[in-house]
Design a protein around this nucleic acid. Structure first.
Lengths: 405, 295
RNA sequence: GGUGUGUAGCUCAGAUGGUAGAGCAGCUGACUCUUAAUCAGCGGGUCCAGGGUUCGAGUCCCUGCUCACCCA
């Protein structure tokens, strides 16, 4: 399967800077060069010649050049530390370079050289412990070395990128939750699903990847829907084609074909050729919508996924109401939300109704660790969200007399 | 696995009774599944649609007839080893970017909890090569994969990957590797033989020391973005606030009326409580293979 | 032949995610209706026995005993 080594024209690439910030870039026809934060622009031809996984570093000559990943050899030496920092002065007097010295150095030297200069002009560096030296160099490098790492636009990288940049745009959906939702809903190739995706289109896109063009994802929407994640995953045409939008109004109406979204295009206005072309496009679109809607209504779906943020609670409830009847018995219902109470109420109602089994309300407690010899521990983040959000999932069962024989 | 609406003879299906009572059975005319919910004749299950409640012949208890999703497989399988559960499985599927078309290696197979999930995620077009160094366990796992109907995507082999690698035929042809081994660091060299540049390796270990050692080995062997993660599932139960409390003390009619008023005020309310949880499973370590033009 | 069950001195523990929770009995106290009743409180737990295994995390397995159920 496609596992390109290099980013290509028309594709996306995720860049991560030395401080860990991430940004997604589209290498479209109009794309000239990439601007990452306050770094100087990276020329497009350099980008296209850099494989995924590689590092580009801005060198003293002002050019962006490949830089090898450090082998970590320094970390592998005997981890015993005898010395300590008992006698280090803690009065801000250790560094002899002034801020303007550092600024000047940065103009003419590589980031590495700046870090080296800072270390050698530090009165305390030489007497620091081995671990403290490593940490010092790492921190200075984060600040002064200008480098970007090339990452593939996978569902995980995109989710982390969006989550770091603006959590609310993906309604607080972390990658572990995203993955868990897909697993809980048993999203698989060949399945048919209904989804409300308020998380930048990432859930829909990730579902399309799992379907690989076989099966259907009906994307329920009201008004419009975000497609960022859907596009930035670089899906194939076949993968994209499995996703069909469905207006919620068509699902909630007793006369769906009279709703705005499904109303057949009127062919009254075909005066000029331009308008005629537009009318034709409109008619095609109307036919497609009708076909999609009929395809959905032909048989119930295997899974219903609702990912909604705090502002979309009403929409989530509306979608749930119109979509649950379209979920096949034996199918999975999975909801993600940021508040516990509405989810707990649903959980209680579902359990009491007899129409569901395996009703579970779940959170994921996930944390990342620093992993270094003799220094492995959870990252200390003062404002972390170790288990933000709730997943409610269940299997629908037939509670009628026919279903219970 | 089955995608039709009705269970047919030969299907591997789930009979769901509760969170801890999940039975995976291959339906066969004339057979009976016995458990604490009663005696379930397959003749009466075959032909029923998924999502039905099937009743035992006597006693009136029911089980829900469900499709064998990987999550249910995990909860229904026979433990020959300790197994990996949903939170870690979904996480590692994400870390490995497991999806149709991808080729992934797993060692060891263990009880097949991860294999069943990965296998399903790679279909169609992909393949899971899973290796187990314990001969009897490999044989049983193979039989399970046949039972689950996964043989079109899962190749199971008896092999010690730490000593003998993943095999010549997989050289440079694998997009991701999952290691669930006591000494994952010992397999890193062989992983490098099969993993494409940019491919990911994920290990699962219960101890920090194992992770430390493996991380060091990975960094030394041309891997970057070495990350260590821990994920735990926190489950919540719910109770009707209106339901009568067992601990109530009814001293007088007055007190009773008071309690009833309190009940009325809580009508329609739900109280959440935390369910017992696994406090530790293991640490996941993930790393990415450096580009081809780096050592 | 197959399946399930087994924890307090005794007996149990939820019709679908409530097995460190109880009831009885016992003990202490209050009270009055005193061969005792009622009320309040207290003490009491490590899971049938043995074996084997999982990664350095069991929702693990086997054998025996017990009782219950299903099949013939």
């Amino acid at each position: 399967m496609a596992f390109p080594a290099f980013p290509a024209r028309g594709a996306h690439v995720v860049l991560r800077d030395s401080e860990g910030a991430q940004k997604v870039f589209f290498l479209g026809a109009n794309c000239q060069d990439l601007r990452m934060g306050k770094y100087p622009a990276i020329p497009l031809d350099t980008v296209l010649a850099t494989p995924y996984g590689a590092i580009l570093r801005r060198e003293a000559n002002g050019k962006w050049q490949r830089h090898r990943h450090s082998s970590g050899e320094a970390d592998t030496a005997d981890a015993e530390v005898q010395e300590n920092n008992q006698h280090l002065a803690q009065d801000n007097s250790a560094q002899s370079l002034t801020p303007s010295d550092v600024r000047d150095l940065k103009k003419t030297c590589s980031g590495d050289a700046v870090v080296e200069a800072l270390a050698s002009n530090s009165a305390t560096f030489a007497s620091k412990t081995k671990f403290a030296k490593e940490k010092y160099l790492k921190k200075k490098a984060q600040k002064h070395v200008q480098q970007v790492t090339f990452l593939r636009p996978s569902a995980m990288e995109l989710c982390e990128t969006y989550y770091k940049a603006s959590r609310s745009k993906v309604c607080g959906l972390r990658y572990d939750y995203l993955s868990s939702i897909l697993c809980q809903a048993d999203v698989r190739s060949g399945g048919r699903y209904l989804v409300l995706d308020c998380a930048a289109g990432l859930v829909t896109g990730a579902m399309a990847q799992q379907l690989a063009g076989v099966g259907q994802v009906f994307r329920v929407f009201k008004g419009g829907f975000p497609e960022k994640g859907f596009f930035e995953l670089d899906l194939s045409e076949a993968e994209k084609a499995a996703v069909r939008p469905i207006a919620v109004e068509a699902l909630s109406s007793h006369e769906p074909f009279s709703t705005e979204w499904l109303r057949p295009a009127s062919n009254a206005e075909a005066e000029e050729p331009v308008a005629a072309g537009r009318a034709e496009a409109r008619a095609t679109r109307a036919r497609q919508r009708k076909a999609d809607f009929e395809s959905l209504e032909a048989q119930p779906v295997h899974g219903l996924l609702i990912v909604a943020g705090e502002d979309e609670l009403d929409l989530a409830m509306e979608v749930l109401e119109v979509c649950l009847p379209r979920l096949s018995p034996g199918g999975r219902a999975v909801l993600f939300g940021q508040h516990m109470q509405p989810m707990a109420a649903l959980q209680g109602q579902w359990r009491a109704s007899g129409g569901f089994v395996d009703v579970r309300l779940m959170q994921l407690f996930t944390r990342e660790f620093q992993v270094l010899p003799a220094r492995t521990h959870p990252f200390m983040v003062s404002e972390s969200q170790l288990c933000e959000g709730f997943i409610l999932c269940a299997s629908k069962v037939d509670n009628t007399a026919a279903g219970t024989d | 696995m089955t995608s039709e609406e009705c269970a047919r003879e030969g299907d591997f299906v789930i009979l769901w009774g509760s969170y801890t009572q999940i039975f995976g059975v291959v339906l066969k005319h004339g057979e009976i599944t016995n458990n604490r919910f009663g005696n379930f004749h397959h003749d009466e299950i075959i032909g029923r649609s998924y999502g039905s409640k099937v009743r035992s012949r006597k006693g009136g208890l029911w089980l829900a007839l469900l499709r064998a999703s990987p999550e249910f497989v995990t909860h229904s399988l026979t433990h020959r080893t300790q197994i990996v559960y949903h939170a870690d499985i979904s996480m590692l599927r994400c870390l490995l970017d497991a999806r149709p078309g991808r080729v992934i290696c797993e060692a060891g197979t263990g009880s097949g909890s991860v294999s069943a999930s990965l296998g399903r995620a790679l279909r169609p077009g992909g393949r899971l090569h899973t290796f187990e160094f314990h001969e009897e366990r490999q044989r049983q796992a193979q039989a399970d994969f046949e039972k689950y109907g996964l043989l079109d995507v899962v190749t199971s082999r008896h092999r010690d990957v730490c000593n003998n690698g993943f095999g010549e035929d997989l050289r440079g042809a694998v997009h991701g590797v999952f290691l669930d081994l006591p000494a994952p660091w010992a397999a890193v060299g062989h992983v490098s033989e099969v993993l494409v540049p940019g491919g990911k390796v994920v290990t699962f270990s219960p101890c920090v020391e194992q992770v430390d050692k493996t991380a060091t080995e990975l960094r030394r062997s041309g891997y970057f973005d070495v990350r260590m993660l821990e994920t735990l599932a926190v489950n919540w139960g719910v109770r009707d606030a209106e339901a009568k409390s067992k601990k109530r003390r009814l001293g007088s009619k007055e007190a009773e009326e008071k309690e009833e008023d309190a009940d009325a005020a809580r009508r329609g309310e739900w109280l959440s409580y935390q369910m017992p949880m696994r406090s530790h499973t293991g640490y996941l370590l993930v790393a990415t293979r450096c580009p081809a033009d780096e050592p």
